[in-house]
Design a binder for these strands. Sequence first.
DNA 1: CCTACCGATCGGTAGG
DNA 2: CCTACCGATCGGTAGG
Lengths: 199, 199
Amino acid sequence: MPRPSNKPRILEAATDLFSRKGFRATTVRDIAEAAGMVSAGLYAHIATKEDLLVEIVREAAEEFEQALAPLVALPLEPPEKLRQAVRAHLEVVTQSPARARIFLDEWQALSPPRRESVQRWRERYEAHWAAILQEGAEQGAFLVEDLALARVFVLSCLNAVNRWYRPDGRLGVEEVADRYATWLLRVLAGPVDKTNHPR
Amino acid sequence: MPRPSNKPRILEAATDLFSRKGFRATTVRDIAEAAGMVSAGLYAHIATKEDLLVEIVREAAEEFEQALAPLVALPLEPPEKLRQAVRAHLEVVTQSPARARIFLDEWQALSPPRRESVQRWRERYEAHWAAILQEGAEQGAFLVEDLALARVFVLSCLNAVNRWYRPDGRLGVEEVADRYATWLLRVLAGPVDKTNHPR
DNA sequence: CCTACCGATCGGTAGG
DNA sequence: CCTACCGATCGGTAGG
């Protein structure tokens, strides 16, 4: 009978600590204690503290990827696709807040060789958003002038939710997603000129 | 004749290092070297490394405050006031990027007693934005349903510019400010219902 | 602002 | 996964 490894406990402890205190401010002794062992015991499961951070970032990247990728291929009207993408992203951001925070911010503590692979994961995820916006622009549903800037704008708003959202707060994630989607669709709908003046 | 103190050099070095590497990853030896002295020499000017961070956050808070406060009292139409506020905020964010980053993020490395005064500076600044939005709502120019959420939304987008803006990039800060202001005004203009269907 | 230094703590290893 | 430990580095001080 294989008894359960404690690796998941270590990852869980590190995720919580890295997200709350930051990678540099977290010691291997902190992690070991939270996982119920002494610091030397960690090294039966990991090679370095930095590997732990990479592994958490990878988990988080997969979580974002799996939330969004299926949606991108769906045959939806662009506004509805955007609305569902906003909801999917915010669900990850609010329901795995520690992992999400590490994917969004704390990966920057990695040293250059490992940063680059993380950067590729991030670019791959952002490419899904580019595709959603591109599709909306091609179909004439999104009239925004600068798609690259619009993508940055959209993801800025959404990612920041990770910093302020609290599960016991005034708004649930569905409410935030609905309002944010509505607002972002106003941005993407393009200039509204009720008087039909030429611009 | 009072010769010029090296305190400004220390602050400048610490601002650069804290913003690039983070507070925890920056050593007092790093700062001293960048300021042209040995680490013990720092302590002729400061009491602790943390004091240095507090001082930088205070400088940054003042810079944001001085950019926005005069504007808030001006007799401008709400959309124009918002546009000018966006520009003022983004100018600080892009022209003092290191200081701004410390005001926006790195202050969280402070331990609880000092964090609280920083939090008050931040709340004071955010109150100006609340006032701008409130005024627009009262005058009927901004029709957004949830002013508190709108303020978070607006500041999220604007603050994130600090993370991606590069002086040698495709867009200058004026262009980013103009487009962002346009987009945010679409959000704040409220629902546009060209067909006059009831909602 | 420098030389010299300190106690604490860091990430990680040896050996079982 | 533990006991025992290591070299490096940390923020900061003494004394001038």
